[in-house]
Amino acid sequence: MNKTLVSLTTVVLAAGLIAPPPAHAEIRVFACEPEWAALAREIGGDKIDAFSATHAGQDPHHIRAKPSLIAKIRRTDLLFCSGAGLEVGWLPLLLQRGAPARIQPGKPGYLMATDHIEVLEQTTVTDRSFGDVHPEGNPHAHLDPRNLPLLATVLQQRLATLDKINAEYYRDRAANFTAAWGRRLAAWEVRRSALKGMPVIVHHRTWSYMVRWLGLREIASLESKPGIPPTPSHLSALLQTVRTQPVKAILLTPYDPTGPADWLHGKTGIPIVTLPYTVSRDAGPGALARLFENMLSQLERAHGIR
């Protein structure tokens, strides 16, 4: 009976789990969020195999431990995440569960985007009464497109360190990506100036990088303190604010709760705009550019430009 059970288990486990390794990819990239997997694919091309731990509709603050995540992290060559505390709830635990030394903090295989860009909302305030403030700053760094060429360069250097044979390949792809991205930024510049000063309300401080890039005017956030649901007094103060000055849109991510936004929309009629926060999990080339195109079009529509 015991033997049958053991062999049955073996069959079940083996059938479910033995997946063929990718055909020619050399470097396995574990991205915490889809945007970093997409950037890794732009730079790494077919020399890498990128996997994203979360998908676009998921709040990267919270994920559940699945067996495949542990399996993936153990064979990872490069870990690519936002950092600044975004993954603090699960990444340290995952790194403890047998992740290789080459992707531990301080190693070339450990790449946190917010270590390499100008981080917004950094604070030395340790008083937690300010809310879910990460003292490390705002982690949603990919939402300023000007950060992406910077990160492409860092990523290319890391890939070249880890995979010296293909260093040339990564350098070429990074150069191409950066050049193409520069042309896009120039094209977006025109649309950016039209959106400048557009007054918006955000749900959470997710959009700070985009708000800064586009020069939007963030009137208020629905959360009374970051990460904390709005209190009644905060909402009534918000209502007063909105009545005295025009607001064009309430900005949400796909994973924000819609309750507070619906409430404010019902009272004031300000349109709710759910912007894509990131790309799809298996996003191919060009997806990052389309993310910003989509964001700009939605904002332009809300602003009444188109």
């Binding site: 067996p67 937690r128 990460g227 904390i228």
Partner: peptide, 19 residues
């Protein structure tokens, strides 16, 4: 008033057996 203590309690209460 204290959200990161909330992360602590959520962690204690939810437990991640695979981790």
């Amino acid at each position: 008033g204290h959200p990161q203590g909330g992360e602590e309690i959520q962690h204690i209460l939810s437990g991640q057996i695979l981790f």
